[in-house]
Amino acid sequence: MIRRKSHRAKIVVIGGGTGLPVVLRELHKQKAEVTAVVTVADDGGSSGVIRDYINVVPPGDIRNVLVALSDLPEKFKKIFQYRFDSTDQFFSGHAIGNLIIAALAEMDQDGIFNAVQELAEMMQVDGHVYPAANQALTLHAHFSDGTEMAGESEISQANKTIEKVWVTTEDGTKPRARQEVIDAIMEADQIVMGPGSLFTSILPNLMIENVGQAVCQTKAEVIYICNIMTQKGETERFSDAQHVEVLNRHLGQNFIDTVLVNTQPVPNDYLDRQKYDEYLYQVKYDFKALRAQGCKVISDDFLLLRDQGVFHDGQKVVTELMRLAGQKRF
């Protein structure tokens, strides 16, 4: 059963990739009323294979979000997350949860949205998990050299400077989010974007016209959690202010209210650059340029070093989010 408690802070988290569940797990622990709006433009890995074969919304990000907000015992969540190894040739690389989501989407002729709501109830999700659109979207990019490319994984591997991204549907209609997504954004106390890939995890959601409009019109505080490291093929040598400038430019106005920036240095030679080959340098700080865009800047030690990788400390980030949400409400 999905529980709704109106006295809790209403927080909408928009994004995709591995950064989204980090924030959601800690918000879940804090009993916030969470709505996750999840990208449907992924075309890599198991999600991409399933999308190509049975033409459903890529399930991987949705699967991870469902688990992050689930109240099921850990053993059941581990089953849902289990990924077959390479010796299982037919199922190799697929997570059980991806297959379940794909099956439910195929059973429901109205698209992925209703299927995810049914699964959220089965998984005892505390909150809401909303696909950003009810059908799979294709991400497009225009590069600084004048060329264009389609496909999230191809764009991120092109090693070109991205100037603009947008999304399309397979049937050529204008992408639209369900009304539930728009209502959640408009009724929220706080909108959180990130951490996550700027062009391929966050912007695909905002490029859905009614989602972008709602984020600009909402009275909620709009918060961007800036990435700690720059990303190959997307944000090479970007400062924190350049991340925000890209977001503002895509929506045509300065809509970010607050930016969370990690200021703790990443130790030299800590990062395993073979394992985490998409990360390049630590994001540079430009607080003056952030404030020039109308942003309040919150800088602190949000760094978590683990397994020779660089991550956001979800607990520290959410402590700050809850503090800001309390200020907004009271």
Rank of each mutant, 00 (worst) to 15 (best):
Thr161Lys: 10
Met186Arg: 15
Asn205Pro: 05
Ala133Ile: 10
Met186Gln: 15
Ser197Val: 05
Ile155Lys: 04
His128Glu: 13
Gln179Ile: 04
Thr138Asn: 09
Ala158Glu: 08
Gly127Pro: 03
Glu209Asn: 12
Thr147Asp: 05
Leu203Ala: 07
Val116Phe: 01
Ala136Lys: 08
Gly196Leu: 11
Val181Ile: 09
Val211His: 13
Ala136Thr: 07
Asn205Thr: 00
Lys160Cys: 02
Pro175Trp: 03
Ile208Leu: 12
Glu187Phe: 03
Ala115Gln: 10
His142Phe: 01
Ile208Thr: 12
Ala133Thr: 09
Trp166Val: 14
Ala188Trp: 13
Ala132Pro: 02
Gly127Asn: 00
Met207Thr: 03
Val192Ser: 08
Asp171Ala: 13
Glu118Phe: 13
Ala136Phe: 08
Lys174Val: 15
Asp171Val: 12
Ile162Asp: 03
Ala158His: 07
Leu198Lys: 10
Glu152Gly: 09
Glu163Gln: 15
Ile155Leu: 02
Phe143Trp: 03
Gly212Met: 12
Thr169Leu: 04
Thr147Pro: 05
Gln179Thr: 02
Phe143Asp: 01
Asp110Trp: 04
Asp183Pro: 12
Leu139Tyr: 01
Glu163Met: 15
Thr147Asn: 07
Glu209Thr: 10
Asp126Ser: 05
Ala177Trp: 13
Val129Leu: 08
Ile208Asn: 10
Ala103Glu: 00
Asp145Glu: 11
Thr173Arg: 08
Ala150Gly: 08
Ala214Val: 04
Pro195Met: 14
Thr147His: 01
Ser197Lys: 02
Glu118Trp: 11
Thr147Glu: 09
Met186Ala: 12
Asp145Val: 11
His128Met: 15
Pro195Trp: 14
Gly172Glu: 06
Ser156Leu: 09
Glu148Tyr: 08
Glu121Thr: 07
Asp189Phe: 15
Ile185Cys: 11
Lys164Ile: 05
Gln157Ile: 11
Asp183Leu: 13
His140Arg: 04
Asn159Lys: 08
Glu187Val: 06
Gly111Val: 12
Gly146Ala: 01
Asp171Asn: 15
Ala184Pro: 04
Pro204Asp: 07
Asp108Trp: 06
Tyr130Glu: 05
Gln179Arg: 05
Thr168Val: 07
Glu118Lys: 15
Ile208Ala: 11
Ala115Arg: 06
Glu121Val: 06
Ser144Ala: 15
Lys164Asp: 00
Thr138Lys: 09
Thr168Phe: 03
Ile202Asn: 15
Val181Trp: 00
Met193Tyr: 09
Ala177Gln: 14
Glu121Ile: 05
Lys174Leu: 14
Ala150Ile: 09
Met122Gln: 10
Ser197Ile: 06
Thr138His: 03
Ala177His: 13
Met149Ala: 02
Phe199Arg: 13
Thr173Met: 06
Ile191Arg: 04
Gly127Arg: 01
Asp110Phe: 02
Ile101Lys: 02
Ala188Met: 12
Ala150Glu: 10
Gln213Ile: 14
Lys164Gln: 04
Gln179Ala: 02
Gly172Trp: 03
Val181Arg: 07
Pro175Glu: 07
Trp166Gly: 14
Glu154Gly: 11
Ile191Asp: 02
Ala133Glu: 05
Phe199Pro: 10
Ile182Asn: 14
Leu104Asp: 12
Asn159Tyr: 03
Gln157Gly: 14
Thr168Glu: 07
Ala136Ile: 05
Met149Glu: 10
Gly196Asn: 12
Gly146Pro: 05
